[in-house]
Each structure stands twice: as structure tokens, then as C-alpha cells.
Design a protein around this nucleic acid. Structure first.
Lengths: 337, 337
DNA sequence: GAAGCTAGTGAACACGTGTGCACATTCGCC
DNA sequence: GGCGAATGTGCACACGTGTTCACTAGCTTC
């Protein structure tokens, strides 16, 4: 009979609570109550209503509920760049976790400048929250969100505004620990290959390296900045390695480090014999035998877990002050140090 | 004065069309009309209303509009796995394109079985469409969508149901062409390393290889299946290359091919001297100098463009029959053949 | 000046839901 | 039998919007 309906050009009438009420011979209120756990309704009637609803494929309209409750269960996620393997993996984990608690992540790819105007447009929904991952966001947008009362959770780069929650990896501590390890293994001629200087993560990681070197009475022989991609990392590393006699090259992320590995190969430098190369993040590629990269893990699951916890706390108490959670980095020793 | 309001524990009253109407001394209808381009409204009044609205940060509530119009501007996107670099890149491009036309992609990560129940739950929103990328979806969900009148667009694996649109790469033709090229270059002892056998793309690509070999009176010496990941690809390739004397190994995707490259390296086989290795997709990594992989490009932007076009056509005419668009694959000659 | 037409405007309805409130019914107890 | 309490149910409102419909004021035309 569905096939017979297949040719319907009439407007497909959506099945609503009233439909179910008519079918079950009860009032529309009763149908609504059948779907809200705490409500007064005789067990027999509730059971009958739910059965009929299931047969008819009825579910309460989320837009109507959202309009009524002032809460949409939608969460905007502003992600730096999907081309970055770390961000992509992070996004996947975050999406799964949000799906599990029935919050729906709306993906805004933030590479383009148009992303900011997209967020502005999205504000028309009563979003449950706005989650920032990495990428920068115009300050006026942040303020606009705050004024509209949309909770914000930032991950990877702290946002200091009244009721904004933050989740951040201990970048400096991680790379400081790693640098200490390299020094203990006898390395002394250090280079640092950073990311975009305006990135918080890159600045923090650099600070960690310099801190550890300072403790040991050392200073970096050379520095350069990349853009967190493999290609630019390789080019920058080639220059650093050719023009300086380094025995350790600390990179601000794994993609850059992987670029550095191929630069070393091009220059016939043995890793780790001639020079140690380490990264940050521990993306899936770092474990591949071809790279076997020693790195500092920027753990995704604890960070996502913290975001989910903060989100639930914030929804329970919208007025509470902002909170900051730090995630410990983990040294992963493989074959390049 | 905003700061003074900062300590408000009162319910943050959302600014609504009525607020603007009161401020401007007009009726609420006038405010609504000011925001709908075609409506009758004196230019002077419209201008004043829009100015006041901008100052107050008012935008029409998307939930209310959606409820009224029966269209939410939300699009569910069901993606195979974010860990797969091709899927991640595809998703990024798709998100950007959807953002640009003011459609909001809700990301459902489909690795888990719970994804199907998530889709069911999402059905409570009057979704503009459901976009499938790769990953399989339970047939009952497909039927449920059809019954609820939610348009579906599938990419990467055709879904044959009444009003479902499809976008698919010419997998077979792409790999057939590539195999012909290898044969023309003198290769004759072929191996094929596939993906999961139940994947449409893997089966199609295999068919292309076998077709080209058949034309030349050849047959593959050995075959194996992987799961489209580097790790499993490497293990399978190692076995294939050790147990057979191949001079060409055709892989069903780039990740597998990259695994094969490292297997060849382990076995001290020269690529392309001893054996040619080719992949499919042309992910960003394929271009890296370390891999420099000859492959068949599965072009993302044309595919995403086709999805967007199909979506707009479908929204304009919900009853039209399903359409299928094929995307040409492109041979990318690099250093491994 | 009357009539007809046009541009502009506000009241009212519909969209689909959750829930406060008033009411109906039943039960236990004196 | 009477009465308070407890339980179940339906009406009506609110959420915020777009749009139809009736209506008014202003202008043109005879």
C-alpha cells in the first residue's frame, strides 16, 4: 500500500500527536503525557498510546518541543580544518560522544572567513552550546554568543570570557618533559620548528621546549615556523637541518615532524643516529612503521570526555562561572629519538 | 549596562519580534514582513525596523520558522569513519558547501552500530535531507526515511529506492584505465588488494582491474582483501608480495597502497623497479614526496557539487524521480608505476 | 463629489508541543 | 450516606513565526 501512495503528489501530511490521539480515542494531552516519563497517566492508557504511536511511526516534533522548551539539542561545532588529521579524529570522537547523549553536532568548517558569518546565521537556532575546536573566532562573535546566552566551550585555545568553559592540553608541560628526555639521552644542539606563531598551542609548546633547555643551561640553535602541515614542515626542516648542525629537532605537531622526517631523509641524515625528531599530538600516522615517530600524545578521548561533562554541567546550571580543565599530555617513545 | 545584567539570575528573556515591534511602534506583522523580501511594507518603515532589529541583535527564531514552514534547514550527514582520511576530507568539503547555502550539516559518525538509532532519533526534526557517505545503513532506516518523506542522497554506494538520488564515482572505469596503463608499460604479473568485500566501491574497483586484465588475456596472480586501512593493507601486501612474484600491485584505495609501499620496503623490493604499486582516491598523503603514489583520483569537489545540486533540485521538487550522477575518475601519474 | 483602485497595515490563524489548572471520578474512612 | 483525599483527564495557554484576510487611507478617474 506504500507503493500506491508512492504516486501521491499531495502534500505529505506529517503524523502528529493529534493523529495518534484520534486513533487511540484519547485527548492530545494524553499522547503528550505518554511520552513524558513523569506525567500522570494510567499505565494501561500509556501502553496503548505508545503502541499505536510506534505502529504509526510517530515521534514528537523536535522543533515544536524546542520552541516550547527554549532548548534545541543542537550544538554548533566550529572546527579548525578537516584536512588536519588531528582535528578530523577529534571531530569524529566528539560527534560520536554527542550523538550518544542525543545532542546533535552541527559542523562549521572554520577555514574560510565565511565561517564567522555562518555562525552568526546559526544563532537563529536556540543552540544548546557552541563548541570551539582550535581555529580562531572573531571576538565580536564570542561576545554576540555571550549576549545571546549561548554557552561556549573552547578546546585547544583558552577563551577568557565570563561564563566560557575551557578544555586544554598541558602543551608546555608535555614538550618540556619530552625535551628533558632528549637532554638526558645526550642531545644538546636543539632546533625548534613551530606552527603559526599566533596559535596558542604553538606558543605554549615552544615555551615548554625553551623552559627545559633553560633548566639545562642550553639555548636553541635555530628556530623556524611552519603552518602545521607536512609540506611546509618539510621545507622549513630542510632549511633548518642544512644550515645548522642539530642533533635534535623538536616539532610543534606531528604533521610538521613527519615533514621533518622526509627532509632528513633527503639530506641523508640518519634518524635518530644523526638527529632526533619528535612531534606532538600522536596522530594515527605517527605509529606507522615508516614513521615510527616519538611524540607527545594530545589525548583525544579525555578531552572529549571533559567537553561532554562541562556541557552537561553548564546545561544544568547556565549561570555558573566558567571552568577550566587541563588534560595531561603523555610521552610516547618510539623510534625517532 | 550589559555588565550589570551579567549578574541576572532571572530567565534570560529572548528578544523576539514583539520586542522589536514595541520598540519601533509597529505591529509584529510589520516586523515579520521586514524580514521577508517580497512582502508589502513601506520602504521607510522597513528600513527603520531593520535598523532597530540590528541594534537589538534580533533574528527570527529558526525553530519557529521551521515549525511554520515544515522545513528546518538541517541536513543529517551519515559519514563512514572520520579516521579515514578520504572521508574526513570529503566531510570537510561537504560541510563548507552546505554552510555556504545556509544548510546545516548534523554529523552522525557511522562506525558504531548506535548510529542507526541516532538517525532514528534525529527523524524527530523535519530534516531537509539525509546524506549518506560511504558507510552502510540498515535498510529499515532507509525505508523509514522514505515513509517520513525525508529526501535521501547517497554518495559512494548507490541506494536503489524510489526517490533516492545517487552520486557515484566511476570506480570500475578508473581502475580499468589505470590497469591498462600498467599493462601498456609492460607489467603482466598482477596482484589485487581489495577493501572489505561487502563494500560496493571495492567490488567495483576489482571489476575494473579484472576487466582490463581480461582484455589483455591476463588474470591476476593473487588477490587479498583488506579493510581500507594502512595497517591491514601493509600486512596483506606483505603476504601477497612474499608469496608471489608480482610486478604490479593494484590496491583498492590509497591507504591500502601506502601500507603496500611500506611492505615493499620491508621486503627490499624496489618500487617501481621491481613492482608497481597504485591506489585509489588521491588523498593528500599520496602526493607527499615519501610516497609519491601513482593513483586514481576520486574527485571530491565535483562529487560534493553534484550533491548540492541534487539537494537543491530535490527541495524544489520533492516528488521528482531519483537521479544518478556519475563522477569521472582521473589518472594521476606519479612515481610508483 | 462619488466611485474605484492601490498600497499599506494589523488582527487572527496555523504550525505541534508541554503543562498548569480546573474538573471528574474513584476510594477509603467516619 | 457523606466527605476529604487521591488519582486521572481534558481544556486552554504559551512558545515565535509567516501569511491570509479584512480593512483603512490615499489617489485617480469620471
Amino acid at each position: 500500500m506504500t507503493d500506491q501512495n508512492g504516486s501521491q503528489s499531495k502534500r505529505h501530511r506529517r503524523v502528529t500527536a493529534q493523529t495518534i490521539a484520534d486513533l487511540a480515542g484519547v485527548s492530545r494531552s494524553a499522547v503528550s503525557r505518554a511520552f513524558s516519563p513523569g506525567a500522570y497517566l494510567s499505565a494501561e492508557k500509556r501502553h496503548r498510546i505508545l503502541k499505536i504511536a510506534a505502529e504509526a511511526g510517530y515521534q514528537p516534533n523536535a522543533l515544536a518541543v524546542g520552541l516550547k522548551e527554549g532548548r534545541s539539542n543542537l550544538v554548533a561545532v566550529f572546527v579548525g580544518s578537516m584536512r588536519n588529521p588531528y582535528d578530523a579524529a577529534f571531530m569524529g570522537c566528539l560527534a560520536r560522544s554527542l550523538n550518544a547523549i542525543r545532542k546533535w553536532p552541527i559542523l562549521i568548517d572554520g577555514t574560510d572567513k565565511s565561517a564567522n558569518s555562518a555562525v552568526e546565521e546559526l544563532m537563529r537556532y536556540p543552540l544548546d552550546a557552541l563548541i570551539l575546536r582550535g581555529g580562531s573566532m572573531a571576538p565580536e562573535i564570542v561576545e554576540h554568543c555571550a549576549r545571546a546566552g549561548i554557552p561556549m566551550i573552547s578546546s585547544g585555545r583558552p577563551v577568557s570570557a565570563p561564563r566560557v568553559d575551557n578544555v586544554c592540553c598541558r602543551n608546555a608541560e608535555g614538550l618540556r618533559e619530552m625535551t628533558r628526555l632528549l637532554i638526558a639521552r645526550g642531545r644538546s644542539r636543539f632546533g625548534f620548528l613551530g606552527g603559526p606563531p599566533e596559535f596558542y598551542s604553538s606558543a605554549q609548546r615552544r615555551a615548554g621546549v625553551l623552559g627545559a633547555l633553560d633548566e639545562a643551561g642550553l639555548r636553541p640553535i635555530a628556530e623556524a615556523t611552519g603552518d602545521y602541515t607536512v609540506e611546509v614542515g618539510a621545507a622549513a626542516a630542510r632549511r633548518l637541518l642544512r644550515e645548522n648542525d642539530l642533533d635534535a629537532l623538536v616539532c610543534a605537531n606531528d604533521a610538521t615532524a613527519i615533514g621533518a622526517l622526509s627532509a632528513a631523509r633527503d639530506l641523508s641524515l640518519d634518524v635518530p643516529g644523526d638527529v632526533a625528531v619528535v612531534g606532538f599530538d600522536d596522530i594515527a600516522m605517527a605509529e606507522w612503521p615508516i614513521f615510527n615517530l616519538t611524540t607527545v600524545r594530545n589525548p583525544i578521548e579525555p578531552a572529549v570526555g571533559a567537553i561532554i561533562r562541562l556541557l552537561e554541567k553548564r546545561l544544568a546550571d547556565p549561570g555558573k562561572p566558567g571552568e577550566s580543565i587541563s588534560i595531561d599530555a603523555v610521552i610516547i617513545e618510539r623510534g625517532t629519538h
